[in-house]
Simulated assay, not measured.
Amino acid sequence: MAEKHVLGISGGKDSAALAVFVRQNYPELEVEYFFTDTGKELPEVYEFLGRLEGFLGQPIAKLNPRRDFDFWLREYKHFLPSAQTRWCTRQLKLAPFEQWIKPMLAAGDTVTSYVAIRADEEYREGYTSKHENLKVRLPFREAGIDKKAVMDILESSGVGIPKYYDWRSRSGCTFCFFQQKIEWVRLKERHPDRFEEAKQYEKNALEHGSPFTWTQGEPLEELEKPARVIQIVNDFDRRKQRDLASRPINPLRPADKIDDIDDIYGDDEGNGACVVCHK
C-alpha cells in the first residue's frame, strides 16, 4: 500500500495555479497531474497545458474517455447536456477520473485528490469521495487563497493564464452550455469552425426532440444574426462599463485588467459552472 497524490488540471487558471502552488509549497510530494480530455477542447487549452508541463517538469496525464462525446450524445437520445442534465461532466470528466484511480484504490493505496476551490468560493463544493481511501483536499481554502492571489501565483511563476481568457471566462468544451451569450459571439469570431460544429449538434438535437439549446431560450442560428450580435456586444459593453465604474481603485494592482465575464454578468447568465470543468 502507498500514498498517492493526484491533482486534476482543467485547462483553466485556478487548477493551474493550484498545481504551481503545490509544486512550490509541497516539493516533497510526488504528485500525479491529470487532464480529462473530452476531445472538444479549445486549441488554446492544449497550448496552455504544454506551458504548464514545462513549469512542472513532468507530463500531465491525459485521461481520454473510452467513449467520446458523440457516443454519449447518441446514448442520451441526442439530447444536449444542460445545467439540468450534466451528462457531459459525468461521462466525460468524472467517469474517466474514477476509472483512472480505481486500480490505486483496489491495491489498497490512499489517494489524496487536490481540488482548486478558492477561499472566496464558499458556495462551491468539491468532488465528493465515494471511497474511504480517497481523500479530498482544498489547499486554496486552507491557505486563504482568493482569486487575486491565484493571478499572482500564475504571474510570478511565469506560467501566466490561458490565451482564451482574452475572450472567454472558463475552460472546458468549446460548446459548454455555461457559456454566456457574449462568449458564443466570440467563439464564432475566434473559432468559426467550432461554432458551426456546435450549431450542427444543436440542430440535430432539436430535430430529435431535445428541449435544450446551448444557450437557454435562444438557438445559435438566432444568436448569430448580425442584429442580435450587435445587441449582445452592446449589452456586454454597457455592463462592463458599469462594472468598471463601480470597482474600487486598488493602487497595488493598477495593471489588473482581466475581464471577468462572470463578475460582469453575475447570475443573469451562466448559472454557475461544473465542478470539474471550469477551473
Rank of each mutant, 00 (worst) to 15 (best):
M1K: 03
M1C: 07
E3R: 12
E3I: 08
V6P: 03
I9V: 13
G12W: 07
G12D: 01
A16V: 09
A16M: 09
A19K: 12
A19W: 09
A19C: 15
F21H: 13
F21N: 02
P27F: 13
E28G: 10
V31F: 14
V31R: 08
F35A: 05
T36M: 15
D37N: 14
T38H: 04
K40F: 05
L42C: 01
L42F: 12
F48S: 01
R51C: 06
L52K: 02
E53R: 03
G54V: 03
G54R: 13
F55C: 06
A61D: 09
K62T: 09
N64R: 15
R66M: 08
R67S: 02
D68S: 14
F69H: 06
D70E: 13
E75A: 15
E75F: 08
K77G: 00
H78E: 01
F79R: 05
S82R: 06
A83N: 10
T85P: 00
C88D: 05
T89F: 03
K93F: 06
K93S: 07
Q99V: 01
W100L: 09
P103G: 05
M104S: 10
A106G: 07
A107E: 13
T110L: 06
A116E: 02
I117G: 07
I117F: 04
I117K: 05
R118F: 02
R118I: 04
E121D: 11
E121M: 14
E122N: 11
Y123W: 13
E125L: 14
G126I: 10
Y127I: 15
Y127F: 15
T128L: 14
S129C: 09
S129G: 11
K130P: 00
H131I: 10
N133M: 10
V136Y: 05
R137H: 04
A143T: 08
G144K: 12
D146C: 10
D146S: 07
K147N: 09
K148P: 00
V150K: 03
I153W: 00
L154A: 01
L154D: 00
E155A: 15
S157K: 06
G158Y: 01
I161W: 01
Y164K: 05
Y164M: 13
Y164W: 09
Y165N: 03
R170S: 14
S171L: 08
S171D: 03
T174F: 13
F177I: 15
Q180A: 11
E183W: 14
V185A: 12
L187D: 04
E189D: 13
E189G: 07
P192R: 05
R194K: 13
F195K: 08
A198K: 08
A198G: 12
Y201L: 14
A205H: 03
L206F: 01
E207P: 00
H208N: 11
H208E: 00
P211F: 03
P211M: 06
W214G: 12
L223F: 11
K225P: 02
I230T: 10
R238P: 00
K240H: 09
A245F: 08
A245N: 10
I249R: 08
N250W: 02
L252Y: 13
A255S: 11
K257S: 07
I258D: 04
I261R: 07
D263E: 14
I264W: 02
Y265K: 06
D268K: 14
D268W: 12
G272V: 11
C277F: 11
H278G: 04
